[in-house]
Amino acid sequence: MAEIETAAQVVSATGSGWRVKLKKRWRAWLRALHRDIGYVAIGFTVIYALSGIAMNHIDDWDPNFHASERTLTIAPVPDDATDEDAVKLVATAAGTDGDTPTETLRAGDEVRLTYGSGTQVTAIGDTVTVQQRSSRFFFRVANWLHATRGKEAWKYISDVYAVLLLYLAISGLFMIKGKLGLRWRGTLLVGLGLAGPLAYIVLSGGPDAHKADPRTAGEPTRPADGIRMLPPEP
Protein backbone atom coordinates (compact mmCIF):
# COMPACT_ATOMS: atom_id res chain seq x y z
CA MET A 1 0.00 0.00 0.00
CA ALA A 2 1.31 3.42 -0.95
CA GLU A 3 2.26 5.56 2.04
CA ILE A 4 0.58 8.95 2.26
CA GLU A 5 3.22 11.55 3.04
CA THR A 6 1.20 14.23 4.75
CA ALA A 7 -2.21 14.67 6.25
CA ALA A 8 -2.76 17.34 3.62
CA GLN A 9 -2.35 14.75 0.89
CA VAL A 10 -5.15 12.78 2.46
CA VAL A 11 -7.39 15.77 2.38
CA SER A 12 -6.49 16.34 -1.28
CA ALA A 13 -7.52 12.77 -2.00
CA THR A 14 -11.13 13.80 -1.61
CA GLY A 15 -13.22 13.94 -4.77
CA SER A 16 -15.04 11.34 -6.72
CA GLY A 17 -15.09 8.01 -4.95
CA TRP A 18 -13.59 9.38 -1.79
CA ARG A 19 -15.52 6.90 0.29
CA VAL A 20 -13.86 4.05 -1.56
CA LYS A 21 -10.46 5.66 -1.17
CA LEU A 22 -11.05 6.23 2.52
CA LYS A 23 -12.13 2.65 3.03
CA LYS A 24 -9.01 1.41 1.29
CA ARG A 25 -6.57 3.83 2.81
CA TRP A 26 -7.93 4.73 6.25
CA ARG A 27 -5.01 3.07 8.02
CA ALA A 28 -2.48 5.04 6.03
CA TRP A 29 -4.49 8.18 6.76
CA LEU A 30 -4.46 7.31 10.46
CA ARG A 31 -0.70 6.74 10.41
CA ALA A 32 0.03 9.95 8.57
CA LEU A 33 -2.03 11.96 11.02
CA HIS A 34 -0.51 10.06 13.94
CA ARG A 35 2.96 10.91 12.69
CA ASP A 36 2.23 14.62 12.14
CA ILE A 37 0.43 15.06 15.44
CA GLY A 38 3.31 13.19 17.07
CA TYR A 39 5.72 15.79 15.76
CA VAL A 40 3.51 18.60 17.03
CA ALA A 41 3.21 16.95 20.44
CA ILE A 42 6.94 16.54 21.07
CA GLY A 43 7.48 19.95 22.66
CA PHE A 44 4.44 19.62 24.90
CA THR A 45 5.33 16.07 25.84
CA VAL A 46 8.87 16.92 26.91
CA ILE A 47 7.60 19.81 29.04
CA TYR A 48 4.78 17.86 30.65
CA ALA A 49 6.77 14.66 31.16
CA LEU A 50 9.85 16.26 32.73
CA SER A 51 7.91 18.68 34.88
CA GLY A 52 5.54 15.84 35.80
CA ILE A 53 8.46 13.83 37.16
CA ALA A 54 9.85 16.93 38.86
CA MET A 55 6.59 17.82 40.58
CA ASN A 56 5.73 14.22 41.39
CA HIS A 57 8.67 14.28 43.78
CA ILE A 58 7.96 17.71 45.19
CA ASP A 59 8.16 16.32 48.72
CA ASP A 60 11.79 15.33 48.06
CA TRP A 61 13.08 18.51 46.44
CA ASP A 62 12.07 21.97 45.34
CA PRO A 63 11.52 21.56 41.58
CA ASN A 64 11.45 25.32 40.95
CA PHE A 65 14.29 26.88 42.92
CA HIS A 66 17.68 26.31 44.46
CA ALA A 67 17.24 27.83 47.91
CA SER A 68 19.95 28.61 50.41
CA GLU A 69 20.02 30.06 53.88
CA ARG A 70 22.87 31.09 56.15
CA THR A 71 22.85 32.55 59.61
CA LEU A 72 25.36 34.85 61.26
CA THR A 73 25.74 36.01 64.82
CA ILE A 74 26.19 39.72 65.36
CA ALA A 75 26.07 42.20 68.20
CA PRO A 76 22.37 43.06 68.46
CA VAL A 77 21.33 46.31 66.80
CA PRO A 78 21.16 48.91 69.60
CA ASP A 79 17.64 50.10 70.36
CA ASP A 80 18.73 53.70 70.04
CA ALA A 81 20.30 53.24 66.60
CA THR A 82 18.50 55.11 63.85
CA ASP A 83 16.71 53.03 61.22
CA GLU A 84 19.34 54.04 58.69
CA ASP A 85 22.18 52.92 60.98
CA ALA A 86 20.35 49.70 61.76
CA VAL A 87 20.07 48.91 58.04
CA LYS A 88 23.76 49.70 57.50
CA LEU A 89 24.81 47.48 60.43
CA VAL A 90 22.78 44.53 59.20
CA ALA A 91 23.82 44.92 55.55
CA THR A 92 27.48 45.10 56.53
CA ALA A 93 27.17 42.00 58.71
CA ALA A 94 25.44 40.11 55.89
CA GLY A 95 27.96 41.27 53.31
CA THR A 96 25.25 42.82 51.17
CA ASP A 97 26.29 46.42 51.77
CA GLY A 98 27.43 46.68 48.13
CA ASP A 99 23.80 46.52 46.97
CA THR A 100 20.98 48.87 47.73
CA PRO A 101 17.97 47.15 49.28
CA THR A 102 14.67 47.69 47.49
CA GLU A 103 12.83 47.55 50.77
CA THR A 104 13.78 47.96 54.42
CA LEU A 105 11.66 47.66 57.52
CA ARG A 106 12.39 47.92 61.20
CA ALA A 107 9.54 46.57 63.27
CA GLY A 108 9.45 44.94 66.67
CA ASP A 109 12.73 43.09 67.16
CA GLU A 110 13.33 42.76 63.41
CA VAL A 111 15.33 44.61 60.82
CA ARG A 112 14.48 43.37 57.32
CA LEU A 113 16.26 44.15 54.09
CA THR A 114 14.95 42.92 50.75
CA TYR A 115 17.00 43.11 47.56
CA GLY A 116 15.99 43.14 43.92
CA SER A 117 17.58 39.71 43.44
CA GLY A 118 15.08 38.29 45.94
CA THR A 119 17.68 38.00 48.69
CA GLN A 120 16.17 38.66 52.09
CA VAL A 121 18.29 39.64 55.08
CA THR A 122 16.60 39.63 58.47
CA ALA A 123 18.18 40.51 61.79
CA ILE A 124 16.39 39.25 64.87
CA GLY A 125 18.29 40.00 68.06
CA ASP A 126 21.83 38.73 67.56
CA THR A 127 21.03 36.52 64.55
CA VAL A 128 21.11 37.56 60.94
CA THR A 129 19.46 35.21 58.45
CA VAL A 130 20.32 35.55 54.77
CA GLN A 131 17.85 33.77 52.49
CA GLN A 132 18.51 33.46 48.77
CA ARG A 133 17.22 31.43 45.90
CA SER A 134 17.64 31.05 42.17
CA SER A 135 15.42 29.50 39.52
CA ARG A 136 16.18 26.03 38.24
CA PHE A 137 17.02 25.98 34.56
CA PHE A 138 14.07 24.74 32.46
CA PHE A 139 12.05 23.30 35.37
CA ARG A 140 10.84 26.66 36.68
CA VAL A 141 9.10 27.53 33.41
CA ALA A 142 8.09 23.94 32.61
CA ASN A 143 6.46 23.58 36.03
CA TRP A 144 4.81 26.95 35.61
CA LEU A 145 3.26 25.78 32.37
CA HIS A 146 2.36 22.37 33.80
CA ALA A 147 0.53 23.74 36.85
CA THR A 148 -2.22 25.59 35.05
CA ARG A 149 -3.23 27.60 38.09
CA GLY A 150 -4.11 31.14 37.07
CA LYS A 151 -3.19 30.80 33.39
CA GLU A 152 -6.50 30.94 31.56
CA ALA A 153 -5.25 30.75 27.96
CA TRP A 154 -2.75 27.98 28.68
CA LYS A 155 -5.52 25.91 30.25
CA TYR A 156 -7.22 25.69 26.85
CA ILE A 157 -3.98 25.13 24.96
CA SER A 158 -3.21 22.22 27.25
CA ASP A 159 -6.75 20.92 26.70
CA VAL A 160 -5.96 20.81 22.99
CA TYR A 161 -2.73 18.94 23.76
CA ALA A 162 -4.71 16.44 25.85
CA VAL A 163 -7.07 15.84 22.93
CA LEU A 164 -4.05 15.33 20.64
CA LEU A 165 -2.64 12.81 23.11
CA LEU A 166 -5.96 10.96 23.10
CA TYR A 167 -5.77 10.82 19.33
CA LEU A 168 -2.20 9.48 19.48
CA ALA A 169 -3.22 6.80 21.99
CA ILE A 170 -6.35 5.67 20.17
CA SER A 171 -4.96 5.87 16.66
CA GLY A 172 -1.93 3.91 17.86
CA LEU A 173 -4.23 0.96 18.48
CA PHE A 174 -5.15 0.69 14.82
CA MET A 175 -1.96 1.70 13.04
CA ILE A 176 -0.67 -1.78 12.48
CA LYS A 177 -2.75 -4.78 11.53
CA GLY A 178 -2.14 -8.45 12.08
CA LYS A 179 -0.11 -10.14 14.81
CA LEU A 180 1.88 -7.06 15.69
CA GLY A 181 -1.39 -5.13 15.96
CA LEU A 182 -4.51 -5.80 17.97
CA ARG A 183 -4.66 -9.45 16.98
CA TRP A 184 -1.90 -10.37 19.41
CA ARG A 185 0.99 -8.14 20.48
CA GLY A 186 -1.11 -4.94 20.59
CA THR A 187 -3.84 -6.49 22.72
CA LEU A 188 -1.27 -8.00 25.06
CA LEU A 189 0.53 -4.69 25.60
CA VAL A 190 -2.71 -2.69 25.89
CA GLY A 191 -3.79 -5.21 28.52
CA LEU A 192 -0.50 -4.76 30.36
CA GLY A 193 -0.90 -0.99 30.24
CA LEU A 194 -4.41 -1.18 31.67
CA ALA A 195 -3.41 -3.81 34.21
CA GLY A 196 -0.88 -1.45 35.84
CA PRO A 197 -3.32 1.21 37.08
CA LEU A 198 -6.06 -1.36 37.72
CA ALA A 199 -3.74 -3.51 39.84
CA TYR A 200 -2.59 -0.45 41.76
CA ILE A 201 -6.18 0.58 42.49
CA VAL A 202 -7.11 -2.93 43.64
CA LEU A 203 -3.96 -3.53 45.70
CA SER A 204 -3.88 -0.09 47.29
CA GLY A 205 -7.61 -0.05 48.02
CA GLY A 206 -8.25 3.02 45.88
CA PRO A 207 -8.88 6.60 46.96
CA ASP A 208 -10.68 5.68 50.20
CA ALA A 209 -8.03 3.26 51.41
CA HIS A 210 -6.19 5.86 53.46
CA LYS A 211 -9.11 6.48 55.75
CA ALA A 212 -7.70 5.32 59.04
CA ASP A 213 -9.60 3.17 61.48
CA PRO A 214 -11.56 5.71 63.59
CA ARG A 215 -11.44 3.35 66.55
CA THR A 216 -7.68 3.72 66.79
CA ALA A 217 -6.73 6.98 65.15
CA GLY A 218 -9.73 9.21 64.70
CA GLU A 219 -10.44 10.62 68.12
CA PRO A 220 -8.36 11.53 71.15
CA THR A 221 -8.44 8.77 73.76
CA ARG A 222 -10.51 9.46 76.86
CA PRO A 223 -10.49 7.61 80.16
CA ALA A 224 -13.67 5.74 81.08
CA ASP A 225 -14.85 8.44 83.49
CA GLY A 226 -14.48 11.06 80.77
CA ILE A 227 -12.04 13.13 82.81
CA ARG A 228 -8.46 13.62 81.61
CA MET A 229 -6.03 15.39 83.88
CA LEU A 230 -4.16 18.20 82.20
CA PRO A 231 -0.54 19.11 82.95
CA PRO A 232 -0.19 22.01 85.41
CA GLU A 233 0.40 25.47 83.99
CA PRO A 234 4.14 26.26 83.79
Binding site: A67, E103, A147, A217
Partner: peptide
Amino acid sequence: DGRPRLPPGQRVLENLRAMGGQEGDGSVK
Protein backbone atom coordinates in the same frame (compact mmCIF):
# COMPACT_ATOMS: atom_id res chain seq x y z
CA ASP B 1 -4.39 13.97 73.65
CA GLY B 2 -3.47 10.30 73.27
CA ARG B 3 -3.23 10.28 69.50
CA PRO B 4 -0.03 9.05 67.87
CA ARG B 5 2.37 11.90 67.29
CA LEU B 6 2.82 10.91 63.66
CA PRO B 7 -0.44 10.49 61.74
CA PRO B 8 -0.74 7.39 59.56
CA GLY B 9 0.98 7.45 56.19
CA GLN B 10 3.45 10.21 57.13
CA ARG B 11 7.26 10.29 57.24
CA VAL B 12 9.32 12.82 59.11
CA LEU B 13 11.50 15.45 57.45
CA GLU B 14 13.84 17.80 59.26
CA ASN B 15 12.72 20.91 57.38
CA LEU B 16 9.69 22.21 55.56
CA ARG B 17 9.54 21.36 51.88
CA ALA B 18 8.64 24.00 49.32
CA MET B 19 5.39 22.80 47.79
CA GLY B 20 4.81 25.54 45.24
CA GLY B 21 1.76 27.73 44.86
CA GLN B 22 1.30 31.20 43.43
CA GLU B 23 3.57 33.29 45.57
CA GLY B 24 2.75 36.63 47.08
CA ASP B 25 5.26 39.45 46.74
CA GLY B 26 6.78 38.72 50.15
CA SER B 27 6.93 42.41 50.98
CA VAL B 28 6.69 43.50 54.60
CA LYS B 29 6.09 47.07 53.44
